[in-house]
Design a protein around this nucleic acid. Structure first.
Lengths: 228, 228
DNA sequence: TTCATACTTCGATCGTAACCGAAGCATTCT
DNA sequence: AGAATGCTTCGGTTACGATCGAAGTATGAA
């Protein structure tokens, strides 16, 4: 009767509110310490410790000891994608953790999703890359064109070197606020890093949101125009 | 602090073993009654009833009353995809419900995934369609080529009429037993229906497995060859 | 060495939810 | 009408796990 993999274990791990909040915090892509995660989950350090060890033995988290700190991250991109897709489903079923507050708009505009740009700006960027012929899209599949390769080179991204990674170059990631896809994978990561190196954008501490400088925003919008 | 959709609710719904088993059973695509689902979950009818109402108010299930029966299905394809992707993650982390038993081989060979063919045969079919140039694949994105459209027409599938559906024509679905993708979407559904109409294959009752007749198997393997 | 910080383990409490027996509706069959 | 089937609701039990205080370990700083 019982056959196949055990969904319930993973579901139960994500099903606890404290753990879910910790996982959501880690979707920000940054490695966080047990103490920070305890705060994110709204629980004491002891409780967080037991939760974290459960998540780790369950294969959802990876940890890295550094001095007397212990840094946790999501185990890999597959976990991040699962979390984001659950967020998408939850949003579409109206399961919200709280009513849209004042901090929400910034988050909807631009935020980190694991290691790449999400939100309105993330979706806009992918749309623009596809419209300009830099990326080929078939459904949810994405691939860089020769034109895209040279365009990206000119803004300081070497696509060739990114290809050597075992992780896929392009990946479509569903955006829960926009309900459309944005660009993930090593290219998505490289683009965001590029913006931050140029000083166009920076991360807000303690949050997933990404803010653009006035000049950075101007450049970004010029680089990724949308017809309409 | 708390922002975005509530993953924990969905996680908790899937996190109970009885509910997880019922959801996995519904991944078979067939509408099942409360009594059947109780058996699938290994619980009594009363308990199943409360579980089912929770799943329904949580937006994971849809129900349809018919006479004195109440038929349940997964709410939509998004839920089915979530379940399958959790199975993939669970399998990759080694969370198995039981050791591979004697009934497993048939299931690994060919089974139903929501409404299309999965397992070894499902993966083989997509590989072959891509190799023959009937389907273009970029990463996880799939699209039918003009050649594919005429090839499919010749075996009795009208791609044009399938396109009118709101649901995507082609969709890559991760296969948890093969760890590769197979073909979902309306085309995946149409192909499986086609095989069953021709008498090549039929579903086993009370199971997700699909068995081919000797003749059907011969035809299938001839239609979808693999180079090796 | 001593103190402080970061985290884990132990032990006990407490709440929730899964569970089933029994009774209650609703629908269909005879 | 009465009987049977399919499912839901109620009530009470039980068990599991989330929680935190307190004590224990490890790393680094003074």
């Amino acid at each position: 009767m019982k056959e196949g993999p055990d969904i319930a274990q993973i579901g139960a791990l994500i099903g606890d509110p404290a753990r879910a909040n910790m996982l959501a915090a880690l979707t920000g892509g940054r490695a966080l310490t047990a103490t920070e995660l305890a705060a994110a989950g709204g629980i004491t350090l002891q409780t967080a410790s037991t939760h974290l060890s459960k998540l780790e033995t369950g294969g959802l988290l990876a940890q890295r000891k550094q001095g007397r700190h212990r840094y946790f991250t999501l185990a890999d991109e597959a976990v991040a994608r699962l979390i984001e897709s659950m967020m998408g489903l939850a949003a579409s079923r109206g399961h919200l953790r709280h009513q849209p507050g004042p901090k929400d708009p910034a988050l909807r505009k631009a935020r980190i999703c694991y290691d790449h740009l999400a939100g309105d700006y993330g979706v806009r960027m992918l749309d623009s890359l596809v419209a300009s012929g830099s990326i080929d899209a078939i459904g949810d599949g994405l691939a860089v064109t020769p034109k895209g390769e040279s365009d990206l080179q000119s803004i300081g991204i070497d696509v060739g070197s990114l290809k050597s990674s075992r992780r896929p170059l392009c990946r479509a990631c569903l955006d829960w606020s926009e309900r459309r896809t944005h660009l993930a994978g090593t290219l998505g990561k490289a683009l965001l890093s590029n913006f931050m190196e140029k000083g166009w954008a920076r991360r807000m501490p303690e949050s997933r949101s990404v803010v653009f400088s006035p000049e950075g925003e101007r450049q970004f919008l010029k680089l990724f125009p949308v017809e309409s």
